[in-house]
Design a protein around this nucleic acid. Structure first.
Lengths: 243, 243
DNA sequence: CACCCCACTTGAACGCGTTCAAAAGGAGGG
DNA sequence: CCCTCCTTTTGAACGCGTTCAAGTGGGGTG
C-alpha cells in the first residue's frame, strides 16, 4: 500500500508480518463475517500477538482498507476486460457496474461494515475523506475511461465533471447493493440493467436547448459543492500508528 | 414506542422509569456526544442499574430512536408553520428542508453517530428498515402535503411517487449535512437554496413530450425497486434480543 | 394472613476492541 | 565482544456494551 522504499530488496520482515496479518484478517472476515472475527482470533490465526496487529493497523476498521484497495484493483481490471471492443456508452457503463458487482460479491456479507464507515466523515475510510482521495481518484479515472472510449457525444463542459458524477452514481448503486439481499444480488443487477440506458438518455438530452440552462446550473453546483479543489494538502499520512 | 395499553391510567411506574432513562440518555448524548456517553453513566445518572436500562431498551442504539422521533415531530410542525400561506412549490420545499436543518442543528454533533448506525441494513434504526416504516411514512406524508398545497401542476402518475422521491432527496441532503462542518451548516443551507429551484424545474420539464418517455421509465423503476409494497410481513423480527 | 406469580430490578461477569509499559531483536559503532 | 538505539513484539489490563441468574416487591387468590 504505502511505499516502503528505504531498505528492503524484496520484502522486509516488517512488510511480511503486515501482509500476513492483513491476509489472515481478510480470510477470517470472509469465513465468519466482520463482527464474529475478533482481533484475538486474527492474531492467534496469524501467529502473532494482539498488540502486534495494532502495531500495523490502527484499528480493526483499518483492516478493511485492504478489502477496499483489493476490490478497486480487481474492479478496474475486470471493467477494462468487459469493455474491450465496445463503444456503446450504456454498454460500457453497464460493464463497469456489473464488473463491480461481480468482484464485490464474495464480500457482500461484510460490505455493510464498509458502508457504515461511509457515513462517518471522521473515518479515514469514508469514501469522501481526504485519506481516500487517491483511491477515489483511481475510480473516477476509470469512469473517465468508460466515457472516453465511447461514441457518446457531449460538450466539454459536461465531459469534465461527468466522471465525478458517474463515481457518485456508483456509490448510489453500492448503497442499493448493500441493502439487497437477493441471491447473487439479482435485484441490484436488474436495477443496473434498467438504470444504465436511462443515464445515457439523460446525458443525451443535456444537449437540447430546453434543458441547457438546467445542465449549466447543475454543472456549476457540482463544481461548487461536490468536487473538491485538489483537497487540502497539509499533513495527514498519519494513517498508521507510529508512536 | 410500543403500545402499552393494558393497565395504566396516567403513567404507570414502568412508563415513568422508561422515559426517565430515555430523557437522561438524550441529555447526556447532547452534553457529551454519543460515544462518550456510557450505558453505565446513563444508568447512574438516572439512578437505576445498567440491567434496568436494558430491560427497557434492547441496546444503546435503540435509545437513539427517541431522538429520531422527536426530531421528526418537530420537523413536521416547523415545516407546516414555515409553509403557511405559501403556494409556490420551490418555496415550500425549501421551507421543509430548512426546517429540518433548524430542528436538527442542536444534534449535529452526534447525528453522525446516528447516521453511522443507520447505514447498516440490519439495524432497526436504518431509515430503510421495516421497523422505521411508520416514521418514514410520516415524513413521506409531509412531502405529500408540501406538494398538495402548492400550485405546481403535474400529472397524477408523477404526483403519486413524488413524495417518496422527495423523502429520498431529503435523505441526500441529510447526508450532505452530516459531512458539513461549516458553522450553522451554512454550506448545506446554500446547497439547499440552490438545489431547490432546480428540483422544481426538473419537475416542470417532466411534462414536455421530449422527456415524457424517460419520466415514464423512471416512474416504473421507482415503483419496482424503491417503494416497498407494504413491506414484507414475515419474521426476522429476530434482530433484537427479547429473552 | 400466607402463598404464589410475574413485572421489574439488580450487579457481577463475559467478550470484545484497544492501550501501554515493558521485553526482545537486531544492526551498527567502538 | 559489549553497548546503544530503533524497530518490532508481547500480553496483561482497561473500559465498554451486553447478558443473565438471582433477587424484590406488590397485587391477586385461597
Amino acid at each position: 500500500m504505502e511505499n516502503d522504499a528505504p531498505t528492503a530488496s524484496k520484502a522486509s520482515k516488517s512488510e511480511q508480518t503486515r501482509s500476513l496479518i492483513l491476509e489472515t484478517a481478510m480470510r477470517l472476515f470472509q469465513e465468519r463475517g466482520y463482527d464474529k472475527t475478533t482481533m484475538r482470533a486474527i492474531a492467534a490465526e496469524a501467529g502473532v500477538s494482539v498488540g502486534n496487529a495494532y502495531y500495523y493497523f490502527a484499528s480493526k476498521e483499518h483492516l478493511i482498507q485492504g478489502f477496499y484497495d483489493r476490490v478497486t484493483q480487481e474492479h478496474i481490471a475486470a471493467t477494462r476486460a468487459a469493455m474491450h471492443g465496445r463503444t456503446d456508452f450504456p454498454e460500457r457503463l453497464q460493464a463497469a457496474l456489473t464488473a463491480w458487482l461481480d468482484v464485490a460479491e464474495p464480500y457482500h456479507g461484510f460490505a455493510v461494515q464498509f458502508f457504515r464507515n461511509a457515513a462517518d466523515p471522521d473515518s479515514p475510510l469514508s469514501p469522501f475523506s481526504a485519506e481516500s482521495y487517491p483511491a477515489r481518484q483511481t475510480v473516477v479515472d476509470l469512469y473517465r475511461e468508460v466515457l472516453a472510449g465511447s461514441t457518446m457525444k457531449l460538450d466539454t463542459e459536461m465531459a469534465e465533471i461527468l466522471p465525478e458524477l458517474l463515481w457518485l452514481h456508483q456509490m448510489g448503486i453500492v448503497l442499493f447493493w448493500v441493502y439487497d439481499r437477493t441471491p447473487n444480488s439479482t435485484k441490484t443487477r436488474d436495477f443496473v440493467r434498467r438504470t444504465t440506458p436511462m443515464v445515457a438518455r439523460v446525458m443525451n438530452l443535456s444537449r437540447y436547448k430546453l434543458i441547457r440552462p438546467l445542465v449549466r446550473d447543475a454543472d456549476k453546483l457540482v463544481r461548487d459543492f461536490i468536487v473538491p479543489e485538489a483537497v487540502e494538502p497539509a499533513g495527514h499520512k498519519a494513517s498508521q500508528s507510529q508512536r
